Amino acid sequence: MSTAPSSAVVENTDRYMAVVDATWPPAQMRHQGAWLLRRGGGGGKRVSAASAMGPVTDADVVEAEAAMRAMSQPLLFSLRPGQEALDAKLAARGYVVVDPVNIYACPVNVLAEQEKRPEQHSLATWEPLAIQREIWATGGIGDARIDVMLRAGEPRTTLIGRFDNSPAGTAFVAVSDHVGMLHALEVLEAMRGRGMGKAMMIDAARWAAQNGANTFSVVCTQANIAANALYTALGMTKVGHYHYRQKD
């Protein structure tokens, strides 16, 4: 028997998903009937999934499917704690679970006050530079996801991570509702194992604290074992979760 999610998990997930929409925004969002619809422009699942705004019927699901087809997008729904009835409804229609996601958060100072090695540096810069685009490309983050960053509201920045005098990684971070949220952290393969992921998280939190954040957060697929371990080791706590259901 499944256990109903706590009200705190539901509220936290709702809050941080609103931060995701603000800091990693779709090309278009609109309300239609029972749904919040997103047009992603090729920017991935986060910016392309439909979300229910309340209880839905079978007819509502059909309406959402028609709207997504009209946008030439995959049939994709984002499911949060408390939406178990919709989850079961979609499963019965042949939708499968893809990419369960954890949401991590902590007070921004938990990260910002941690120490780094002297040879680890990050430079905050806007807009993304060519070297950052090259680093992101090595991790499969292409122009469509760069466009997502360009759509985000301020405050926002990118970070160029350096180890000694060599480029080591890049990331994007923005602030909404006093929450700094990190996206698209990518460390060059040759620079892994030198603590650059941790160092760039610390630098991102310091930037967020200087730009109005009192909380720092990140979302991460449950399948990314290394990233989940990093966030936990840095003192972040899992505060919510969500998953997608998709139909081919």
Rank of each mutant, 00 (worst) to 15 (best):
I135T: 04
T125D: 02
P55W: 04
K89S: 07
V20T: 04
P107F: 08
D143C: 00
H31F: 05
V110A: 10
A124T: 12
S48T: 14
E84L: 05
P107C: 06
T23N: 10
Q32P: 01
P100K: 07
S122K: 01
L123Q: 14
D143W: 01
P74I: 04
A85P: 05
V61P: 01
R30Y: 11
L111Y: 02
A27N: 05
R38N: 03
P128C: 04
A92N: 10
V97I: 14
G43I: 03
L150R: 15
A52M: 07
G94R: 09
R80P: 01
V108H: 07
G54T: 10
A88R: 13
P100G: 11
R69T: 10
G33Y: 02
D21V: 00
A144K: 13
A49E: 03
A49N: 03
R145G: 03
M53G: 14
D60E: 10
D147P: 00
L76K: 09
G42F: 04
M71L: 15
V110D: 11
D147N: 11
Q120A: 13
P100F: 08
A34V: 12
A66V: 03
Y104S: 09
A124W: 06
G44M: 05
R46W: 07
P55F: 01
Q114D: 09
L75S: 08
T138L: 11
N109H: 13
H31I: 14
M71P: 00
V20R: 00
P100Y: 01
I146E: 05
L76Q: 11
R93S: 08
A88N: 05
G153N: 11
E154P: 01
F77T: 05
A34L: 11
R39M: 08
Q28M: 03
E154V: 12
A105L: 04
A112N: 09
D60K: 05
V96K: 13
G139M: 02
D21P: 01
P55K: 04
P81I: 04
V20S: 07
L36F: 02
E127C: 06
E119W: 09
S51R: 15
V97W: 00
A64R: 10
Y16V: 03
L37F: 02
F77H: 09
A18E: 12
A52T: 06
H31S: 08
A27L: 07
